[in-house]
């Protein structure tokens, strides 16, 4: 049994937003519950109002609209993983969502809830940032679009206001010849959080890297995009040596924490290794 709170079941998005508006810091939006319930069980979060988003229509769809995938915030991780549409349009996303925890958790956790939780070790932001995704955040004050790479600013702290929720995620469809990869370093068990993980999306034209995006999780207080690595490679001929050198720049983007998955120093070195490997897989794949 958890503490005493009021469980609201609004039927529409405006009703939900009005409830959040009304109760401010005392309320929390509630979707899959996998993160929030653990905090409530340990008395680390004691919201007086939970605003369940489950009954809200229109937030559970995945659709391909022009050049972007639109994923409703209430879509479960497992549904992103298994969606034929996602697999076809952005296989990296399906792969990355499929690496989160275990099937049981992926059946519960929602896309919006996972992002709002802002856990720097969660997998999806790596792929979302590498794919240039953004979220649509709504409150009773209006709607705004936030790039996923700008969504986080500290451990478990996102740019969302307390009265704001994620309505959907828009993922630009990668170019048809783009290659992508998600590498998750799990030296302990397969269900562990990553020691470090890297997603990369890249395009090569005639031996020259025309576009590349690299993002890491579990390497800093927030998911990070390795812009310096990208800058170094973009427009340059792709060689193993160029990749090796570029990957070194990731050191400046990461700021890992010592924990059971490795020391900060080790994680920094592994960020370099896995960035290099991710780049090799995306940019050098045909040569390999």
């Amino acid at each position: 049994m958890l503490h005493d709170f009021t469980f609201h079941r609004p039927g529409t998005l405006p009703e939900a937003l009005a409830l959040l508006d009304e109760h401010g810091y005392d309320a929390r939006p509630f979707a899959g519950g996998t993160a929030l319930v653990v905090l409530m069980k340990q008395s680390l979060a004691l919201p007086e109002h939970l605003v369940s988003l489950d009954g809200i229509e229109g937030m559970s769809e995945i659709r391909l609209d022009g050049e972007a995938l639109h994923i409703g915030a209430l879509v479960r991780h497992r549904d992103v993983e298994t969606s034929p549409l996602v697999r076809e349009a952005a296989p990296l996303l399906a792969e990355t969502y499929g690496r989160v925890a275990t099937v049981r958790i992926r059946n519960m956790a929602t896309v919006g809830g996972g992002l709002a939780h802002a856990d720097p070790a969660q997998d999806p932001p790596a792929a979302l940032i590498a794919l240039g995704a953004s979220v649509r955040a709504v409150s009773s004050r209006g709607a705004r679009t936030i790039a996923v790479e700008d969504l986080f600013f500290d451990y478990y702290e996102s740019a969302l206001e307390p009265d704001e929720i994620i309505e959907s995620v828009a993922v630009p469809r990668p170019a048809p010849d783009a290659r992508s990869v998600y590498l998750k370093f799990l030296p302990r068990t397969e269900d562990d959080y990553a020691t470090v993980a890297v997603a990369a999306v890249g395009e090569v034209d005639d031996g020259v890297c025309t576009d590349v995006r690299v993002a890491l999780i579990a390497a800093a207080p927030t998911p990070v995009r390795a812009t310096e690595v990208e800058r170094t490679l973009t427009g340059q001929p792709v060689t193993a040596e160029a990749i090796r050198e570029a990957a070194e720049a990731v050191r400046d983007h990461v700021d890992p924490l010592d924990d059971f998955r490795g020391s900060a120093d080790y994680k920094r070195e592994m960020a370099v290794v896995f960035t290099r490997r991710a780049l090799e897989r995306t940019l050098l794949a045909e040569d390999a």
Partner: peptide, 13 residues
């Protein structure tokens, strides 16, 4: 209490 259960690196940071 609960604070004691949080990891040192997080607290130090």
């Amino acid at each position: 209490g609960r604070l004691a259960e949080l990891g040192q690196p997080l607290i130090r940071r």
